[in-house]
């Protein structure tokens, strides 16, 4: 059956492929990228407003706004190209993993010095990215270490500055997508970073593949550690209880992207969708919001099963989706060193 499909493919003129690419690219920007970044800016605006109304870490409204905005970021966190990479915006929104503890160090230094950068958005935008974004805000809201550090008014100003900076970054990314990058992605050529529709589709395929890789290897791999040495304290955003939620949100967003990429190949789309459904089912049954369970063998095994389910989707992406999109890579070009 596949052979027949290949033979048929040979008969289809190349221009038709080009049109397919254009349709795929437009569908993904219209249905996936632009609405998700729009949602992000709405949520970050609400977060900024919430900190202005009440900057107390325990404020329920602030915490709700924090979770909603962070959710919206995780839902776009796989779209790591173009506007998110300008001026390290994505890293300034989410500096994680933080292997050397730069976020607490940067925050402590700001608080100890009562750095006036918190009063000036431009100045705050040049603070180390480790002291900005959702993970810095999470530390200020949920890490007991910062509850008493420095003066209450400074902590309040810092929380407001971080939220305003998050919102400004989200706005900048969305504006770039609206005013510039959508055209570049959907109309490849001399004025685009993509010379052809193939390259643009490859970028989106890469976003799917690296998004899955990040969730499996880093979001799950870091807390899993090794069997002999699990690392529950390395779970992402564990203080705000969000580690598992990030896995679910990212899988949901990646499922959407995969469906759009595979839209012209219903059999591949169905396989991918089943893979995502299985992984999401595993995730939802875990009932372990911070992966604290990795500390014991049984709990770790359950997280490992989830990781395996995601790795199965990665295999499908590489062996089924890649070839149908004609973005397979060579022995050396596939995985650099």
């Amino acid at each position: 059956m596949r052979l027949i499909a290949c033979l048929l493919a040979l008969l289809i003129p190349a221009t038709l492929f080009a049109q397919d690419r254009a349709a795929t690219l437009t569908a993904i920007t219209d249905a996936h990228i632009l609405p998700s970044f729009a949602e992000l800016t709405v949520r970050t605006e609400a977060l900024k407003t919430a900190t202005q109304k009440d900057c107390m870490p325990a404020s329920p409204d602030l915490q709700t706004a924090f979770h909603a905005a962070f959710d919206a970021w995780i839902a776009v966190s796989h779209l790591r190209f173009g506007p998110t990479e300008e001026q390290d915006r994505a890293f300034a929104l989410a500096f994680w993993p933080d292997t050397k503890g730069f976020t607490p160090k940067t925050l402590s230094a700001l608080i100890a010095a009562e750095d006036p950068a918190v009063n000036d958005p431009d100045a705050f935008a040049s603070v180390s990215i480790a002291g900005r974004g959702f993970f810095a805000l999470e530390a200020m809201l949920y890490d007991a270490k910062f509850a008493e550090q420095g003066s209450a008014p400074y902590r309040c100003a810092l929380i407001r500055a971080i939220a305003a900076d998050i919102d400004a970054n989200a706005d900048a990314i969305r504006a770039d997508w609206q005013q510039d990058y959508t055209a570049k992605l959907t109309a490849p050529g001399p004025n685009s970073p993509y010379r052809s529709g193939d390259e643009a589709v490859q970028e989106l395929f890469k976003a799917l593949a690296t998004g899955l890789q990040f969730t499996a290897d880093t979001r799950l791999g870091r807390p899993m550690g090794t069997f002999d040495r699990p690392r529950p304290n390395r779970a992402e955003a564990r203080r705000s209880g969000r580690a598992l939620r990030h896995v679910v949100l990212s899988l949901t967003a990646l499922r959407d992207l995969a469906a759009l990429l595979a839209a012209d190949h219903p059999d591949v789309a169905a396989e991918l969708d089943a893979g995502f459904a299985h992984a999401l089912d595993r995730a939802e049954k875990l009932n372990d919001p911070t992966f604290a369970g990795v500390a014991d063998p049984q709990g770790r095994f359950r997280v490992e099963t989830l990781q395996q389910a995601i790795n199965d989707i990665r295999d499908l992406t590489a062996t089924r989706l890649g070839p149908t999109l004609d973005v397979a890579a060579g022995f050396n070009s596939l995985d650099g060193d």
């Binding site: 993993p97 292997t99 290897d217 880093t218 791999g221 870091r222 899993m224 550690g225």
Partner: peptide, 8 residues
């Protein structure tokens, strides 16, 4: 623990 993931 995180394979070939780039952490920094």
């Amino acid at each position: 623990d995180t394979g070939r993931a780039k952490l920094n």
